[in-house]
Design a protein around this nucleic acid. Structure first.
Lengths: 245, 245
DNA sequence: CGGCTTTTTGAACCCCATCAATATCCGTGG
DNA sequence: CCACGGATATTGATGGGGTTCAAAAAGCCG
């Protein structure tokens, strides 16, 4: 669904410090604003794009959340990422000018659309935009590598802890509580993403709750003992506390 | 070791169709050549860069091969990729201007070095270079996603088959035989990359050989039955044109 | 309510890791 | 050249973490 009436403005967007506009001059920002003409809204389970679709635009999540999946030849699905407001969708399409994964809304969500030709030309003009693009591209690559590390080196419990700490951090970056949040994905997608069976996820949540690290109520998560959770996740640094100075 | 005497020239490089120079005009190629002043040589087991190092340059593999690894807090190593001639190293560093993985030579190898500031400025000047960079960046992201798919959905045998088919294709792109090649990595690194124990890798090679799919002699691999290997790897059949059911 | 999806809980099994030992390769120097 | 020693690879035996199968419980919503 196209919502032309809902004009988007990067200059006044609360996500600009996470998204493409970060660090842009006001001149650059204006040009970017001129190119982002559309805002798309997706209902739950709707595809933003599919593997094989031509790369027509890149998208920034504005509200809601998405999952990205790839399929085996037999149609088995693998979730390869979750995307929150301010994060970019479609970078995988740079390889062959067509998407290689499916992006699906986990809940009602909306995105800002930046047509690829505009994007390409803006990147030629503005060093600041290039820099921020490279920043976000590097994050995509690095986070993929961290996921490979988790799948290869961590057991099921450690993977779940790592995931929760990472979500906590991402929620905090967006101004939400790092200690209590609602996951937007069903157990099924979470399990698939972490390479664990749904039943195991349930058992792990139960165990972490019994041991006093979490309080879990369906998709609502409250981190009770961030320190121990962080240890489980094999992190070195002190976890977020949720207490503001 | 810096080898200033060995002047590199993209214009005359046999890898140019795989590497950054692909699709560049001769003017662009000249500028690129001017920036790539150094060629580094790495002996086996030498680090090209380490996680945490500042992003000083990006590198293109010229000869030999590399592995990229990330480490857990405890120092456990996860191999996240192997790199062949013509492939780019260092893209992960775009995120925070410093590398997030370790890159280590698997054998005597050499790379072309493109200092990051030069790279940045060339990207501003030349649309062709930007396009090819985006192409290679997209490949990095897509190949990471394919790896997640393999780790999440395939069993040990299928993962190994997938890996071998992928290597076969990459060797073919570089003008080598797709059916017989030498792996440059020890079983240890291969096993780690695929998330499988070394012993299992050995047993799988033995089984694939017994079943007539492969001939294996240590690191030398001969693909005897590419069709069945490809089926094991769950690869989609080549799209058939002009046939409607 | 009633039919659906989502989540939880229980029990048995299996793929693959782990431990242990042997075999083979390769570089080095006598 | 060949013997030696460490790295690399193969092979065998055993066990466990997590999957799979089965079913009930809990939420959601018309």
């Amino acid at each position: 669904m196209k919502l032309d009436d809902l004009k988007v403005s990067c200059s006044s967007c609360s996500l600009s410090e996470l998204c493409l506009p970060r660090g842009l001059s006001s001149a650059e920002l204006n040009e970017l604003d001129n190119s982002i003409e559309h805002k798309y809204k997706c209902e739950r389970d709707a595809h933003l794009f599919r593997s094989g679709d031509p790369l027509r635009a890149i998208y920034a999540v504005r509200s809601g959340s998405f999952k990205a999946t790839v399929l085996t030849g037999e149609g088995a699905e693998q979730v390869v990422g979750f995307y929150l407001p301010g994060e970019l969708l479609g970078l995988d399409g740079f390889a062959e000018q067509q998407h290689t994964c499916n992006v699906i809304a986990l809940e009602s969500a909306s995105v800002c659309e930046l047509p690829y030709p505009d994007f390409e030309s803006l990147c030629g003009q503005f060093a600041g935009l290039r820099k921020q693009l490279m920043h976000l591209v590097g994050r995509e690559i690095s986070s993929g590598n961290r996921m490979l590390l988790a799948l290869g080196q961590l057991n099921a419990e450690e993977r779940l802890a790592t995931f929760l700490m990472s979500m906590s951090k991402r929620f905090a970056e967006r101004g939400f509580s790092p200690t209590e949040f609602n996951l937007s994905m069903p157990r099924h997608d979470l399990a698939n993403y972490l390479g664990i069976a749904v039943e195991t996820i349930s058992r792990l949540f139960a165990r972490l709750q019994k041991n006093g690290l979490l309080e879990v109520n369906r998709r609502n998560i409250r981190i009770v003992d961030a320190q121990r959770l962080s240890q489980l996740a094999h992190e070195r640094c002190v976890p977020v506390t949720g207490i503001s100075p």
